[in-house]
C-alpha cells in the first residue's frame, strides 16, 4: 500500500515539478494517461506473461466510441466514457475468444494483425470515423458539473483516474485471481493440471488489460479533443510494450515509471532532433540488450541487496 500512497503524493505535486523540468501540463496529463494504459498492460504482460502487440486497438476504439457519442448525442461525459470502455471490452472479448487458444509468439503475431485491422477500419470507414482526418472538435463536457477545461484541472482529473487504476491493479495483483495469473506465467501446463481453466483466466487478463487501455484511450481523446487513426496502429501498441519493459516487467511501479519516462523523452527528443525515432530506437535496444529487467526491476533488486 506504500506504493499507492507514494503515487498519490507524486501525482498531487507533479504539476509543481513539471514546469521547472521543462514540461507543461498537457504533457503531464499525457504521461499520466499512458501510465494508466501501461498499468493495465502490465497485468497481461508482466503478471500473466502474455504478449499482446495490439492493445492500442482498444485504446483507440474506446476513444472513437466516446468521441462519436460526445459529438452526436447528448450523453453526459461519464456515460460516453463508460460506453467507450464497454465497447472496447466487448471487442476484446470477441477477439480474445478467437485467438486466446494460441500461445506465445503466435499469439503476439495474431494481436498485431487484429490490431492493424482496427486501424484500417478507422482509416477507411470515413463516413463514421472521419478517416485520415480523424474526429475533431470533440466537446470536453463537464463531468458531474465539474469544468475540466483548464489544463491543470484536466490533469487532476487524469491523476485521480490514474490513482484509481493503480488501486484496482493493486487489488487484482494481490488477489487469488492474481496468484493464478502468476502461476500461469510460471508454468501454464502445471496450472492447468491443478484444475484451473487456464484459458478463461488468460482471457480475463486480456480483457482487463483492454479495459485499462480503453480508459486511457478515452482520457487521451479528451485531452486532445481529437481522435485519429494512428492511436490504433502497431507503433502505438509497440510503445506500450516498450514502456512496460523500460519500467520493469511484473513490478508494480514499473509501468508507471516506464510510461512517464518514455512519454517525456519522446516529447523532449522530438523537439531537439527530427531523428527522434532513431534515439528512441537506440534507447529500446539498449534496454532490451542490457537492462531487460527495467528501471524498477533494478531499483528493487538494489534495495533488496541493501537491506540484506
Amino acid at each position: 500500500m506504500r506504493s499507492i500512497l507514494a503515487l498519490a503524493v507524486l501525482l498531487a505535486v507533479a504539476p509543481l515539478l513539471i514546469v521547472p523540468l521543462g514540461g507543461y501540463h498537457a504533457l503531464l496529463s499525457e504521461m499520466v494517461i499512458f501510465a494508466v494504459f501501461a498499468i493495465g498492460f502490465n497485468l497481461l504482460l508482466g503478471y500473466t506473461g502474455i504478449l499482446s502487440f495490439g492493445h492500442a486497438a482498444y485504446f483507440g476504439l474506446a476513444g472513437y466510441t466516446m468521441g462519436l457519442l460526445l459529438i452526436h448525442s447528448d450523453l453526459p461525459l461519464w456515460a460516453a466514457m463508460l460506453a467507450g470502455v464497454l465497447a472496447a471490452g466487448v471487442a476484446a472479448v470477441i477477439i480474445g475468444l478467437l485467438i486466446i487458444r494460441k500461445a506465445g509468439i503466435y499469439f503476439a503475431m495474431l494481436t498485431i494483425a487484429f490490431g492493424q485491422m482496427f486501424f484500417f477500419v478507422a482509416m477507411r470507414w470515413k463516413s463514421v470515423t472521419g478517416g485520415e482526418d480523424g474526429l475533431s472538435d470533440i466537446p470536453r463536457k463537464t463531468l458531474f458539473g465539474l469544468d475540466l477545461s483548464s489544463p491543470v484541472r484536466f490533469y487532476y482529473f487524469t491523476a485521480v483516474v490514474c490513482l484509481a487504476a493503480a488501486v484496482v491493479a493493486w487489488r487484482v495483483i494481490h488477489s487469488s485471481f492474481g496468484d493464478v495469473l502468476r502461476a500461469i506465467r510460471e508454468n501454464e501446463a502445471r496450472c492447468a493440471a491443478i484444475g484451473y481453466d487456464v484459458r478463461r483466466y488468460k482471457l480475463a487478463s486480456f480483457v482487463i488489460a483492454a479495459l485499462f487501455a480503453a480508459v486511457s484511450g478515452t482520457l487521451y481523446v479528451l485531452l486532445l479533443r481529437y481522435a485519429f487513426p494512428q492511436t490504433m496502429d502497431w507503433i502505438r501498441s509497440g510503445n506500450v510494450v516498450v514502456m512496460s519493459l523500460v519500467g520493469g516487467l511484473g513490478t508494480f511501479s514499473g509501468p508507471i515509471v516506464g510510461a512517464t519516462l518514455v512519454t517525456f523523452l519522446n516529447n523532449y527528443i522530438s523537439f531537439h532532433t527530427r531523428y527522434w525515432q532513431l534515439v528512441m530506437g537506440v534507447v529500446f535496444v539498449v534496454f532490451v540488450m542490457f537492462f531487460p529487467r527495467g528501471i524498477a526491476g533494478y531499483v528493487l533488486e538494489a534495495r533488496r541487496r541493501f537491506r540484506r
Binding site: 507543461y24 498537457a26 482526418d133 479533443r225 516529447n267 523537439f271
Partner: peptide, 21 residues
C-alpha cells in the same frame, strides 16, 4: 519549430505545447 509528422494528434499535441509551454 516543432516536428509533427502527418498525424493530426501529434499536431494537436505540439500546438498545445507551443501555446502552453
Amino acid at each position: 519549430t516543432e516536428d509533427a509528422p502527418s498525424n493530426p494528434g501529434i499536431g494537436v499535441q505540439k500546438a498545445k505545447k507551443l501555446v502552453e509551454r
